[in-house]
Nucleic acid binder design. Structure first.
Lengths: 246, 246
DNA sequence: TGTTATTAGTCATCATACAACATGATTTGG
DNA sequence: CCAAATCATGTTGTATGATGACTAATAACA
């Protein structure tokens, strides 16, 4: 059932959202340059095959996002990303399991490399920090998700051990994204076999630590990829279970 | 004469904007607490004396601003402010070669995975975009660094082909970081053997494209890692050369 | 009791119409 | 001929009515 078309929202949230993503991409990809006038509402209606309501809502989103500016009677124009460019994931885009999965993919990308670099570069002090975080992780039964959870701390320590502050910076930002309030939590799946689940996760963490400890970069990458890949599969299963089940 | 506009700095751009301001105030002032359900569209139509169109556009703005979230068939709810957290690399921290190297490591992390995912998921249309970017890359002799450069476009297209918008978002952000004013560009090293250099880089890009074209995920990852790893080495060599030399 | 149908409330989308604004072409007055 | 007023056209802003889709709660039924 879990076809590998992992991210593509098979059920679009709403039409306007699709338009927003499409046009955002066309802006970021350079198809629409700064100052360009994007197609008129009528044209967008024609090309996307939706009503003007949807087009206007999409443009409304783009306006609020600061991507475009509309002038009455003339058109809407792409405006330059004002000075403080930054990377930001809109909180409103974190409501579904699919959204969490998309961010998790980013984490996989980041943390596999971070684990590899940490294995090469970790100092003894950083290794000690990691060891402490791992111990807290094994003792504490608290579920992941909390920003202060031992799980998060462990992963953050790995990012710190790379010596590249950007890894830790991005990690700590992504950490705030995984919290969301919806019922997406891992609570459901952990119920059926909590002990087995915890034992397995702990083992995965231990593998990562061991690889970093013995400075085995490739093994660290592999262990981290396995760990987060499993997390992704658990989320997916919880997703389909929630959709099919209750 | 715009003096009459000067009297009232609050010029109503459009009705929706007025609604946005009104409701934003009511949210921030605490009149509407987190989790509260704000009035239905019909009620807002009645209280503000505008049409549903305007109400919906206002709500659309609030959604994009991350203030509220709408659930189909239920209502729209106020959600907690995520404190405007974002990931940002200070431009002032991008002056030395080491800083560029640190960002490049992040790119390696990102793009390696992006190449792998793109190989799995790329559509035919995305492949065509990639092919075009590659062609422009080979023809054009312009040096990298510019945000509109073929090199950047090629890499961005790969990020887009993952289907995960966050990859493209982060990529385009990191792209702005590599621009800055430092003369650390690859110009120096390219001088000694420019032809050989270009031939090699083109070959690396071609390898990446080929792997994505035949949906070979592992090969795509490897090719991208090789490519960016080589870029890193070139940068390092340019660094030590610059330090020792002039 | 438990399950299914129905219903009401709400948001999502569509279609149409008209008003407000901007711009360039056309007409008109000198 | 020139310049100003007017008109024509295109675009965004707003209004209105209708229909579809989703959710939760209630009613009907076995």
């Amino acid at each position: 059932m879990q076809n590998d078309a992992a991210i593509r929202p098979k059920r679009p949230r709403n039409l306007a959202h699709q338009l927003v993503e499409g046009m955002s991409e066309r802006i970021k990809s350079g198809a629409l340059k700064v100052g360009d006038k994007l197609p008129t509402e009528s044209e967008l209606v024609a090309t996307y095959g939706v009503s003007r309501t949807v087009v206007r809502e999409a443009i409304s989103h783009l306006q609020a996002a600061g991507l475009v500016e509309t002038q009455h009677g003339i058109g809407t124009f792409v405006l330059e990303q004002s000075g403080g460019a930054n990377f930001r994931i809109d909180a409103s885009e974190m409501s579904t399991v699919m959204d969490v999965l998309a961010v998790l993919e980013l984490r996989i990308s980041l943390e596999t490399e971070a684990a590899g670099l940490a294995a090469q570069r970790r100092s003894e002090g950083q290794l000690e920090q990691l060891r402490r975080a791992l111990a807290a992780l094994i003792e504490n039964v608290a579920q992941a998700g909390d920003a202060a959870s031992p799980d998060y701390q462990f992963h953050l320590q790995i990012a710190l051990a790379t010596g590249n502050p950007h890894f830790a910076g991005l990690m700590s930002y992504l950490g705030t994204m995984v919290i969301p309030r919806n019922r997406v939590n891992t609570a459901r799946l952990a119920q059926e076999d909590r002990v087995e689940y915890l034992r397995r996760v702990n083992r995965e963490h231990q593998d990562i630590f061991d690889a970093i400890e013995r400075r085995d970069s490739d093994a660290a990458r592999a262990a981290m990829r396995t760990h987060l890949g499993n997390s992704r599969e658990r989320l997916k299963r919880a997703h389909v279970a929630a959709e099919a089940g209750s």
